[in-house]
Amino acid sequence: MKKWVFWLVALAALAAMESSLRGLIGAYNYQIVILVGINIILAVSLNLINGYTGQFSIGHAGFYAVGAYTSASLVFYGGPAIRGATAFLPQIAQNAVLLLAGIFAAAIAAGIAGWAVGIPSLRLRGDYLAIVTLGFGEIIRVLILNIDAIGGSRGFSGIPQLSNFFWVYLVVLITVVTVHNLVNSSYGRAFISIRDDEIAAEAMGVDTTRYKVMSFVISSMFAGIAGSLFGHYTMYLHPNSFLFTTSFYLIIMIVIGGLGSIEGAILGAVLVTVLLEVFREFGAFRLVNFSILLVLIMIYRPQGLLGAWTLFRPRKAAPAAK
């Protein structure tokens, strides 16, 4: 199939679903579907670092926050100007331009944050890297908490709603295709070689620092885009949405599905998001169940539910023992 045909069909399908979905499944389920989509973007992108490159980051929520707040403030403060410049377009196109501007800014800002965090911290290994990324995520959150122009501890309200099913799942598709293509190219093999054996990878001419930073930046950019979509859907942002527990949940998604597998990340994102919603009425008990489930999966099936199994071609096994 020609690539442009695929994308054309995808766009048409998404547009058709957007126009009918909310009526079909109701506003509440529609919202869950959106959340699932955003979590898929986050999980698949995080998998690039944690699953393929083998670096353990637990600071994804930080980049998610950078994207969300960047996009929201661009649209909130610069929106009127952009609308003015595009006044000749119909409303829906103006919205699209605004959202795309927000997404673009979010990707750039989160990418820069990823680069700034990645360069120094990727010299560290394993647990140290994990705790430093967690620390960076928390620093970002505390910084946001202290910037009054974006709401500080009150939260950022009044963000225009621009994203919807169409946009979220368009980005889901782009994320999945991008990560899939990337891991099946020389870049992906370089990432995996670092995960398998960093010293051997260096000896074979893989500039491990460069590739690690690269996977960090790409992953952060997608997290930023997810943030933009989130803010422009919920119309309100609060630093507490970006606590390190958010990063924990993302880790859980990719681990439950199986590290280093795109399908696994998708499955994990869907399962975790839906399960948490379905059991919402049980209050704290749902999270008790959920955490016990997580512990049991890790004890009885550490390779995740899908493990090394993949739907698409080239299979990549679970990460090597350390």
């Binding site: 353990f56 880790i251 859980i252 681990v255 704290a284 999270l287 997580l294 890790m298 004890i299 350390k322």
Partner: peptide, 26 residues
């Protein structure tokens, strides 16, 4: 399953932590 990676153990730790926090709330 016999654990080969320390990552699984770290995630178990995260799980236990979530368990204690939410179990504590309950």
């Amino acid at each position: 399953v016999r654990q080969e990676s320390r990552l699984a153990l770290l995630i178990i730790a995260i799980g236990v932590s979530l368990f204690l926090e939410n179990g504590g709330q309950q």
